[in-house]
Simulated scan of single mutants.
Amino acid sequence: MKFAIVSVGNELLRGDIVNDNAKYIAQKLAALGHSVERIVVVPDRVDDIVEELRRLLKYDFIFVTGGLGATHDDVTAEAIAKALNRSLVLDEKAVKQVKRWTDKKEVVEKVAKIPAESEVIQNDVGVAPAFITGKIAALPGVPAEMRDTFEKIVKRFEKLEVYEEDVIVEGKEEDFLEKLNSVVRKFPDVEIGSYPKPGYVVLKFRGKKERVLEAKREFLS
Rank of each mutant, 00 (worst) to 15 (best):
A22Q: 03
Y24V: 03
F3P: 12
V46K: 14
L53C: 10
L13K: 13
A26S: 15
A22H: 03
A31K: 15
L29R: 13
I5P: 03
E51Y: 12
R38V: 04
A4F: 12
S35R: 13
V64P: 07
D47V: 06
L29T: 13
E52W: 07
L84M: 12
N10I: 01
E37P: 01
D48A: 14
V75W: 00
G33R: 10
V50I: 14
R54Y: 06
D74F: 06
D73H: 05
G15P: 08
H34C: 08
A79L: 00
R38Q: 10
G67I: 05
H34G: 09
K82P: 00
T76D: 00
I5D: 04
G33I: 08
D74A: 05
V64K: 08
I25F: 09
E11V: 09
D47T: 10
A31Y: 04
L32D: 01
A77E: 00
N21V: 04
I25D: 03
I39F: 02
V8D: 07
I25L: 14
A81E: 04
Y24S: 02
L57G: 02
Q27N: 15
R55T: 13
L84Y: 09
S7M: 02
L29G: 13
V8R: 11
N19G: 07
V6C: 07
G9S: 10
L13H: 13
A4G: 15
K2P: 01
V75D: 00
I49S: 11
E78Y: 01
Q27R: 15
V6I: 15
T71S: 07
L32C: 04
V41F: 05
I80D: 10
L32A: 11
I62C: 05
K2M: 11
K2F: 10
E78A: 11
K2W: 06
L57N: 08
T65C: 02
N19L: 03
D44W: 03
I80C: 03
T76V: 07
V36E: 07
G9C: 10
Y59Q: 00
L84K: 10
I25K: 06
V41D: 03
L56E: 14
V75G: 05
V75E: 00
E78D: 13
R45Y: 12
G69W: 08
G15D: 11
D47K: 13
T65W: 02
V46A: 03
V41L: 12
A22F: 02
V42C: 07
L53M: 07
S7W: 02
V46Y: 06
V64S: 09
K28S: 14
Y59G: 01
V64M: 02
S7T: 15
L13E: 10
L29H: 12
G67H: 05
G9M: 07
H34I: 08
A81G: 12
E37M: 11
K28W: 07
I5W: 02
A31M: 12
V40L: 09
K58M: 00
A79S: 11
A22M: 05
S7L: 01
E51C: 06
A70V: 01
I80K: 03
